[in-house]
Amino acid sequence: MSVNQETVLEHARLKQRPNWFKFDMRAYTMIGALMSIWILFSLLHDRFLSPTNLSNLFLQMSVTSILAIGMVLVIVAGQIDLSIGSIVGFTGGITAMLNVWYEWSTVPVILATLGAGAAIGFVQGWIIAYRAVPAFIVTLGGMLIFRGALFGTTGSVTIAPLTPSLKSIGQSYIGDVIGWVFGIIGLIVAGLLIIRKRRARAKFGFEVEPFAVSMLRLGVIGALIIGFVYLMNSYKGIPVPFVMVIVLALVFTFISRNTTFGRHIYAIGGNPEAARLSGINIKRRILLVFVLCNTLAAVAALVLTARLNAATMSAGQNYELDAIAACVIGGTSLMGGTGTIAGAIIGSLVMASLDNGMSLMNLESFWQYIVKGGILVLAVYLDIYSRQKKKA
């Protein structure tokens, strides 16, 4: 065998070896940007990485994160929703009116608010899916309609205060012991998922990553979980709204990855014509996507209204832009077919970190708009550039 043939065979063997630490440029860039933001603000202000400020940071990001979870599904399906900010304001107004004016108890108020969000999603989704009106137009109209409905139903006045049980949704914390229990459960679940993945690969004949690599992954995850619980317990505990974010993220990650509905959504966004020819009921899937997204907007409204202990006329304003930016920064493509819930959560954390850090620095509010707008444009540019590079 010649030297050239041996070299070719060696290259082929190396190419076939699995890369257990495969480099995902977009994911590492996003995490690197978040770490850079945290390091920069910690150098500029010594309170940024304090337990108190980090607790407030995770509390502040909760509403955007919940909205981003729903927005990921919409964008992955090749649609857009510009109305969720106004839906947050309108359904938050419903929450406060029922609780303060009509003295409804907490559970009926929650059910009514979620029902209102689901009904709005059904109407908007039906117009988009079954009457073929572009989502941009329908939700742009919805943004104006629901903002006006908020002003009309509340008389343009702030409604407060809420009852203590309803207020606790946005202002309470989980105690130290329960926080550590949740942390241990999270670590156990992470270990079980890694074991399940290894067994699944072995079952279907795929090469399994070395055991040491799996343990290293688990060690990194465990360190993050333990560090997070320790920091939160150093202040008041884990904020309840952030626990809601974690639960919703896990549920919708499972839906998007492990259900037929989730696979259909990615197929519709990636290639609508191929999805139609495959027998996917596109209209029904699009309708359900908007129902889920607007229901999550109602969940965000509950959290925001409870945290503020009031329904205000400016509640939810521009939140749709923050949610879209969080999704795009987190790797969701505006072209559809690509995006993850975890990426959107990290994108929300990036946005919240910028807001929090610049507020600590007492920068004028216009700088926050300029910086966030610039990051959004950069994220879209990177998405388009990476797509063009793949095609080339």
Rank of each mutant, 00 (worst) to 15 (best):
T7W: 03
T7E: 12
E10F: 08
R17T: 13
A27M: 14
Y28N: 11
L34R: 02
L34I: 01
I39H: 11
L40P: 00
L43G: 13
R47F: 13
L54M: 08
S55Q: 03
F58E: 02
S62W: 00
A68H: 01
A68E: 02
M71R: 02
V72E: 01
V74C: 04
I80K: 01
S83D: 04
S86E: 08
I87M: 10
G89I: 04
L98T: 00
W101I: 15
W101A: 15
P108F: 02
P108D: 09
L111F: 00
G121P: 01
V123W: 00
W126K: 07
I127M: 04
I128K: 03
A129E: 02
I137L: 13
T139G: 10
L140C: 07
T154Y: 06
T154H: 04
A160I: 06
S165A: 12
L166D: 00
Q171T: 15
Y173T: 07
I174S: 03
V177T: 15
V181Q: 12
G183K: 05
I188Y: 03
L193M: 15
I194H: 07
A200R: 14
A200S: 15
A202W: 10
E207I: 12
P210Y: 05
I221A: 12
A223V: 14
L231F: 10
S234G: 11
G237D: 05
I238E: 05
P239A: 08
F242R: 09
L248C: 02
V251P: 04
F254C: 13
S256A: 12
S256N: 12
S278K: 10
I282T: 07
L292R: 01
L292M: 08
L296P: 03
A298K: 03
V299S: 05
L302R: 00
T305C: 09
L308P: 11
N309D: 15
A325G: 11
A326K: 06
L334C: 12
M335G: 15
M335H: 14
M335D: 14
A344I: 02
I345A: 03
S353N: 09
N356T: 07
N356Y: 05
L360I: 05
S365D: 11
W367H: 07
Q368H: 14
G373F: 04
L378T: 13
V380D: 08
R387L: 15
Q388V: 10
Q388C: 08
Q388I: 10
K389H: 11
K390I: 06
K390L: 11
K391F: 09
K391C: 09
